[in-house]
Design a protein around this nucleic acid. Structure first.
Lengths: 124, 124
DNA sequence: ATAGTAATGATATCGAGTTTTCATTTACAT
DNA sequence: ATGTAAATGAAAACTCGATATCATTACTAT
């Protein structure tokens, strides 16, 4: 049976409150503040369970380790800061992406990724 | 000094005529028809040289090995077939992507990736 | 034709992310 | 409190794309 542990609770909390997609390394760093000594294997296991539960969904960016965010966020896209490497959510979507595809292609989904610098990096 | 070999010629030809981004494995398969026994290390080396020459540019899709296509193609985006795994070019772009980003974000570039089934897989 | 050296191909190695192993710890039903 | 089985953490192993090594092949300037 499934058990509640401080590790899993901390990992879930970090992801629930992040407001942006986090990598396993980012989750580990953040959750280690609550649970010192937290191991990466534990984070991987917890994240995979949260994915299976449907609480998280994966955000894949080219050439990057997978990030994870709450599955209940609705349609949106992502911004990848080329300076600090963090990923952010961007609301809104131009829509009608399917029309870009040539005749004969069946579009099931789309992803838009913006690249640039986040506010913190623009300021710093 | 640089030398012309049948391998490099075949690799360049395959990429020049592909009409879509090819992975190293795809290049190897296609070029092996012209140059039997072609090794993957040779393809990696030739592709890296063509990148350095500016003849190719890399196309990165999430969770996929890098693909390569001609650098002279102009702004466009990509379609990834979830059935056969091939990548395709899609012309056109909704434009004004920068407006999606929240205040304070500096957008330098964007990528749009469509997912679905290509005509061959829809038919098959 | 020959020498010099870049290119090739088989193989080993690397590197980053992720999973597995396993001894130990710990949550939880009893 | 106790037993048992799930969870943890450290380390090893694994995956897979990409690079490096090295003996051999084969362009090309002479």
């Amino acid at each position: 049976m499934k058990r509640k542990t401080s590790q899993r609770q901390a990992i879930r909390d970090v992801l629930a409150d992040a407001g942006r997609p986090l990598s396993v390394a980012e989750v580990q760093d953040a959750a280690a503040a609550t649970v010192p000594g937290l191991g990466s294997a534990t984070v991987y296991r917890a994240v995979n369970d949260l994915l299976a539960d449907g609480f998280l969904k994966a955000v894949e960016l080219p050439g990057q380790p997978a990030r994870y965010e709450r599955a209940d966020l609705g349609h949106h896209h992502h911004f990848h800061c080329e300076s600090c490497g963090k990923a952010f959510d961007v609301q809104g979507c131009p829509g009608k992406m399917s029309q870009l595809a040539p005749e004969g292609f069946e579009v099931r989904a789309h992803e838009i990724i913006l690249y640039g610098r986040c506010p913190a990096c623009v300021a710093g």
